[in-house]
Design a binder for these strands. Structure first.
Lengths: 321, 321
DNA sequence: TGCCGACGTTGAAGCGCTTCGACGGATGAA
DNA sequence: TTCATCCGTCGAAGCGCTTCAACGTCGGCA
């Protein structure tokens, strides 16, 4: 393994000079820098595990805890775009799937940058994130600006768009079938904000509304609950990728036709193309996050928030009340 | 961040004793060891980046170069199962998507174990793999036993099964639409072995056979080539996830009915359920690889080869010649 | 000509960890 | 009681790297 001293010897300077030349943390004359860079390249030098961080490790960590209620395929779609984008910037990707993903990175974390997904309104990972002192981007929007750039679909607007669409079709009672309770309990931003937009807009339009957190396995129970509810909802918004298809099946089995008897509107990544939906652009979010993370190197650290506007596509599963 | 000295102080011993107690590299009295372990647990101690490797980093690296001709969704399916299985063993996953993925790991690589995918018959990564001195598993079977456990679909048998199936249906001329030329050039094991099985079995049954490496974008050109070929193939085996659907479309546009005019048999991960196929069990391979990697810790390092038998499902796209 | 400041570079210290060599107390034999 | 042995523990050195403080050298200004 080639060490910094090897490079130093070859370039005729001291190891510390090599360190400074490669990190740019101190001014180094152009000539010396060039010699160092050349020596490093010739020897194929690659910084090893020194104490405080491995220099530029070219690794992008994604804190994507696989908790209950998380739809794996959606996560993988995001991951795929992250991997692709990271690769374009010559980075590999470390998937931290544990609840305490960030804590598993030792103090001097061997990663260059961090992408945090499945963000909660008061996400406990944020404090730890700050202590890592690495560039970071959140995919999701906490309740309070975290001092870190955020990217997300505008879920509040998505909830609003869904209700508006249904109200325009003449529906007077709407339901929201959301992710399982635990997702709400941990205050997942996407779920909470969608409910906010959904409920507020329903109230504004004087629609009756109800919210039903649901396990994907409980599609039948949910279908029954929707049928029994009074006032009976004539439209249901489904924000739960894993639940959508089972729910449609359960509804059909109960003799309900979509959209004649019940309109169904999905919010998710993985929506069949026969179902009207606000599609969550997981791939776009991932790519955007990586761009923000790896490009804004040069420039102000701009902790800005980017909310993508929701796009509602009518595809036949929603109709007049 | 909690350091080894913190643990040492709490346990009332010296840092080196903690190191020995936790690594087991020297005999430590049961009492002391217990106190150390307890202190470590209470403080949530997690070894940080010492010099020679980070101890048990709980990271599993996947060397999955994203090269030309690689079907990303298939790769992600595999990744998904790897992530899931790794998580069950309390590991995170580092995706090395660069050509020289293994080289990017510094000498004392911060990973516990390695999974190598998209293996070539003479894969140049193998030598580097050995020098890393980490447990490793190959998903794919090189030409010569590499001294490392291998897991793969039995692609030779898959090629054989496809031709057998078609021969039984009475076909006398069969074609193989494979991945792009570059995939063959780098001697990707799955592609080479399938061709082997395909060609040998066709010869054995005295069927005319031809092989057509193809870019997914060249579906139309390929369709024309198949139509013009003499003897005209009455069946085509497609080992190219990204090509399959475009090719079916191109065939349909040329007025060919499947399976009446041409039988289509796919080999891949991502096959629509209307197409007869030998399904590549990416998810199963990933999970199996991880099991082998993280379970065989306790036991002999058994460099064995596991070849999964191909399963051919008839689903309507293959018929009598 | 002499002084001062700036710049580029260096040596040394220190990061948290492992590991070698050595110490010291307990134990068994003489 | 004395001595040899051994086990468990410790101190110190060293891993490759960063970073601080200091050093020499140069150019500019008086």
């Amino acid at each position: 393994m080639v060490r910094i001293t090897d490079v130093a010897r070859r370039a005729g300077v001291s190891p510390s000079t090599v360190s400074y030349a490669l990190s740019g943390k101190r001014p180094i004359s152009a000539a010396t820098r060039r010699r160092v860079e050349e020596a490093a390249r010739e020897l194929g030098y690659r910084p090893q595990s020194g104490a405080p961080g491995l220099g530029s490790s070219k690794v992008l960590a994604v804190a994507a805890p696989l908790r209950g209620g998380v739809h794996l395929p959606a996560m993988m779609r995001l991951t795929q775009s992250v991997v692709t984008a990271a690769r374009a910037h010559d980075h590999d990707v470390l998937l931290l799937t544990h609840e305490d993903g960030l804590n598993r990175l030792g103090g001097p974390a061997p990663v260059d940058a961090l992408l945090v997904v499945d963000v909660g309104l008061r996400d406990p990972r944020l404090s730890r994130l700050r202590s890592l002192r690495r560039p970071a981007v959140l995919i999701g929007l906490p309740a309070h600006p975290p001092g870190v750039p955020c990217v997300d679909l505008d879920y509040r607007a998505a909830g609003e768009a869904c209700v508006r669409h249904l109200a325009r079709l003449g529906h007077r009672a709407v339901a929201l079938a959301g992710p399982p309770p635990e997702v709400y309990l941990r205050e997942t931003a996407s779920a909470r904000r969608l409910v906010e937009g959904f409920t507020a807009t329903a109230d504004g339009h004087r629609l009756a509304s109800s919210v039903h957190p649901a396990e994907p396995s409980a599609a039948h129970a949910l279908a029954d609950r929707l049928l029994r509810a009074r006032p009976a909802p004539t439209a249901v918004v489904v924000q739960n990728d894993a639940l959508l298809v089972p729910l449609l099946t359960a509804l059909r089995q109960r003799g309900l036709r979509v959209p004649q008897d019940l309109s169904v509107l999905a919010v998710g990544t993985d929506v069949p193309d026969t179902v009207s939906a606000v599609t969550v652009p997981s791939a776009e979010l991932g790519a955007l996050g990586v761009e923000l993370l790896l490009c804004e190197r040069t420039g102000p650290p701009g902790p800005e928030t980017t909310l993508l506007p929701p796009q509602l596509s009518e595809r036949g599963s929603t109709g007049p009340a």
